[in-house]
Each structure stands twice: as C-alpha cells, then as structure tokens.
Amino acid sequence: MKGPADLIFYVLAAMTVGSAILVATLRNIIYSAVALLFTFGGVAGLYVLLSADFLAATQLLVYVGGILVLIMFAVFLSNRISSVKLSNPVHFRLPAAGICLVLFGTLAYTAVSPAFALKARVTYQPTTAEIGELLMTRYLLPFEVASVLLLAALIGAALLSRPDRPDVARPDMEEPK
C-alpha cells in the first residue's frame, strides 16, 4: 500500500509508541496520564486504519472516558500529590526488563506468524450487527464471564464505599430538615 495511508500509519505508530514510552518514564503521574491519552488516541487511530471503527470508538469510550478519568480521579483524591516530585518512581528495573523481553518476544512471534488473514482493501462496513451476533452466539461464555466479573467489581466498589456502620446515616448525605 502506497500513499497517505502508509504515512498516517507511521505517524500514528510513532505517536502511540512515543507516548507509551513517556507514560513509563515520566516522573509526574499526571503527565503520565496525559501521555496515556495520546497512546489511547493513537491505538484508536490504528483501529480506524484497519476499518474497525466500532472498536476505535470503544477504545476511546472505555479507555479515555473510563480508565483514564479513573486514574486522574485516583491521583486527585490522594493526599498531597502535587507536592510529591517523584510520584511515579521506578522500581525493579531488571525483572521488569526480563518480563518485557518475554512479552515482546511472544507478541513479535505471533505478529509474524501467518495466522492472520490479510484484508486486501480497507472498507467501512457496519460491523456492530456482526459483533453483536457473535457475542450472543459463538462468544457467549466469555461475554457472560466478563459480565459476572464486572458485576463482582461493582458490588465490591459499593461495599467498599459504604459507611462502616449501616445503622448510622451519614450526615452529609442527608436532606436538610
């Protein structure tokens, strides 16, 4: 494939990888979070290039609208985050490097293996109906398992945020008399 699609691919890939490196190396965790925004954006762009527009939008909705906002909230709610210069310290360099190497090897091996079907031309067909059908038939079990997992997480969050003694109502959540 020649032309602008190649160029766009390289720009997006550079953006994804570059910002991912920043996420890992920046010392300020807020900066890491903002760099993560560009990583997610780059991955979403790659999905669009592969004509997986639904997946791209999901990537933005779930990771930017959900995970990233959650990370920022966690940072804001922690104590004295702005005064701590090293809020994103580096630990365990050597084991991390080993794990990364193994992961990279596995991914590279899978990527070059001929198991992927290549599409000749990028087309933007509606994919949602097909995805929905597959989720309800072939991939029903993984789908349901993921739902149960999320439900468990929801119940856990509700339990954690409950007041310690259920008989004592929290005064700040009460209607003024």
Partner: peptide, 28 residues
C-alpha cells in the same frame, strides 16, 4: 456519515472530561 454515528459522539466527547480534569488540576 459514520456507521457508528451516535457511538462516535459518545466516545469523542469523553475528551471533554479529560480536558476539564486537566484544566482543574493545572490551574493549581
């Protein structure tokens, strides 16, 4: 006329949330 029109709107507006959070934090 995207195939995922409505969904796209929901997804792209999540940038607003990040922007608002960043604005609030960066203002100090």
């Amino acid at each position: 006329d995207l195939n995922i029109g409505i969904y796209y709107v929901m997804a792209i507006t999540s940038l607003v949330v990040v922007g608002v959070l960043v604005a609030g934090w960066a203002s100090n």
